[in-house]
Deep mutational scan, measured.
Amino acid sequence: ASVAVIAAGTQGNIFATSALRSMRFLQILRMVRMDRRGGTWKLLGSVVYAHSKELITAWYIGFLVLIFASFLVYLAEKDANSDFSSYADSLWWGTITLTTIGYGDKTPHTWLGRVLAAGFALLGISFFALPAGILGSGFALKVQEQHRQKHFEKRRMPAANLIQAAWRLYSTDMSRAYLTATWYYYDSILPSFRELALLFEHVQRARNGGLRPLEVRRAPVPDGAPSRYPPVATCHRPGSTSFCPGESSRMGIKDRIRMGSSQRRTGPSKQHLAPPTMPTSPSSEQVGEATSPTKVQKSWSFNDRTRFRASLRLKPRTSAEDAPSEEVAEEKSYQCELTVDDIMPAVKTVIRSIRILKFLVAKRKFKETLRPYDVKDVIEQYSAGHLDMLGRIKSLQTRVDQIVGRGPGDRKAREKGDKGPSDAEVVDEISMMGRVVKVEKQVQSIEHKLDLLLGFYSRCLRSGTSASLGAVQVPLFDPDITSDYHSPVDHEDISVSAQTLSISRSVSTNMD
């Protein structure tokens, strides 16, 4: 405001104040949320940038038409019409005319000016109207692209899951042992070998009828009888010197917790746990005396209480009078009846079946994303299906024409109403129809010849004498029936064969 007042002088105070007050009108834009329509302006900018070359070309040609039209109309009207006294007036008329506004304040009066105005109007309006069409088509394409992008975003994750499931299904095939990355992934998420051994031990116990592997080994086996189970490696608790092959000598807290839970599941009659010990102070733990958990001091820290809870689970003690015997301790020893080589084939089979199920689920979810969402998608899918159906029908028609023997030239002739090819031409065609016709002709010829021969033979049998045999009239074959199959017997006289037959029969009768 200060700059405006200084620039306008003393009389500019009122002007500056009114100008600043008129800017209050811009507050109405906040009512229509114009300040939060950044996406709309961004869309407009992207459309203009995408079609910038077309817009520049249309505007450039339109500007050239405007300059030439205004100049030529000015030359034609400057002497006869006072409205075109300057080139600026003519340029104003050209702008209003070519933009199809047409105020009518300035019009050419001479015939030359009117002809020039009409010609440049028809030429220039087309170029001035091009930017509107370019922007409209650009907006339509952009909206369609955003629509497809939205659908693509919805299909991206199911497609990625389907590709991942397909690759993992491919890589978990037993015949592709060189693909090891997927197996490394499952090695990292699978439970430890100790848990798998416990699982298979329970399965084997159920197969043995509820007997433990130790009891199965204690059962008497006759001499020479084959053992029911192959000899396997035996594993004891981590306190002993022997372990399962492939295990580490260090046992983690999870393994100890699972070991304690498995020992508690063996039965309360074979294992008696004394009350857990509780320390009397955060600094020292008295293991010899058993106290109640309700006497825990409230001033303990979080670490002390955590250690106390761990001691409740991981440090059970047995009383002296209830101490288990050596046999019970041997039964409680952890027996590992299986090795990694025995378990891994079954584990890989389970993983393979899981990968198949996940692949089928991913495939079903991806197919669900291909379903249409709204009416536009339904129409688009219907149009695509219609085009596909037309293509299939056209391909089927082409194959039928190839089989029947109607080529493209014959199809055009039928469409024009011309006469089709004759039967002889159809026979000569190298097509399925021509071959079928040729075979039918040959079969008819053979059938006719057989009928003639059978009739001749029956007449010979009825006559009974050589004289009557020679008097029999043998009809000749019709050459038209034989089609294109020409037998060497067709052109010979059958009477010669009949005479030869009669001579042979007379000779045979004389010999008798």
Results as ranks from 00 to 15, higher is better:
Ala290Ser: 15
Pro408Ser: 10
Ser468Cys: 08
Asp512His: 03
Asp401Val: 14
Thr172Ile: 03
Gly470Cys: 04
Ser504Thr: 12
Arg194Ile: 06
Gly267Arg: 14
Val474Met: 08
Asp484Asn: 11
Ser497Pro: 04
Arg205Gln: 07
Ala177Gly: 12
Ile379Leu: 11
Ala177Val: 09
Arg194Ser: 08
Gln397Glu: 02
Ala310Glu: 13
Tyr373Ser: 02
Pro479Thr: 04
Thr465Ala: 09
Arg352Ser: 12
Phe243Ser: 12
Val507Ile: 07
Gly455Ala: 14
Lys358Met: 11
Ala424Gly: 11
Ser281Pro: 13
Tyr457Cys: 07
Met259Lys: 11
Phe302Tyr: 15
Ile343Val: 13
Glu415Val: 12
Asp478Gly: 03
Gln271Lys: 13
Gln444Glu: 12
Leu312Met: 14
Ile503Phe: 03
Arg406Gly: 08
Ala197Ser: 11
Pro488Arg: 06
His272Tyr: 05
Arg411Met: 10
Arg256Pro: 15
Val507Gly: 02
Glu195Asp: 10
Leu190His: 11
Gln381His: 03
Ala310Pro: 05
Pro268Thr: 01
Leu211Ile: 10
Arg176Leu: 13
Ile393Leu: 03
Pro275Leu: 09
His491Leu: 14
Phe243Tyr: 09
His202Tyr: 09
Ser283Gly: 15
Ser497Cys: 11
Gln204His: 06
Phe302Leu: 11
Thr280Pro: 10
Ala206Thr: 08
Ser192Tyr: 06
Ala181Gly: 09
Asp341Tyr: 09
Ser299Arg: 14
Ser333Asn: 10
Glu429Gly: 14
Asp377Asn: 03
Leu198Val: 05
Glu492Ala: 14
Ala424Ser: 06
Ser299Cys: 12
Gln444His: 08
Tyr186His: 07
Ile481Phe: 05
Asp223Asn: 08
Tyr186Asp: 11
Pro324Leu: 03
Val221Ile: 06
Gly464Asp: 07
Ser301Arg: 11
Val496Ala: 13
Met251Lys: 15
Ala320Thr: 14
Leu273Met: 10
Cys336Phe: 05
Pro345Ala: 15
Phe366Cys: 02
His202Asp: 14
Ala177Ser: 07
Ala177Asp: 11
Phe200Leu: 10
Gly409Ala: 05
Glu447Lys: 14
Met174Thr: 06
Thr482Ser: 10
Leu169Arg: 07
Ile354Val: 03
Glu326Val: 05
Gln473Pro: 03
Leu273Arg: 07
Gly288Val: 15
Phe243Leu: 07
Ser508Cys: 13
Thr465Pro: 04
Val474Leu: 08
Lys438Gln: 10
Asp478Val: 04
Ile379Phe: 13
Lys365Gln: 09
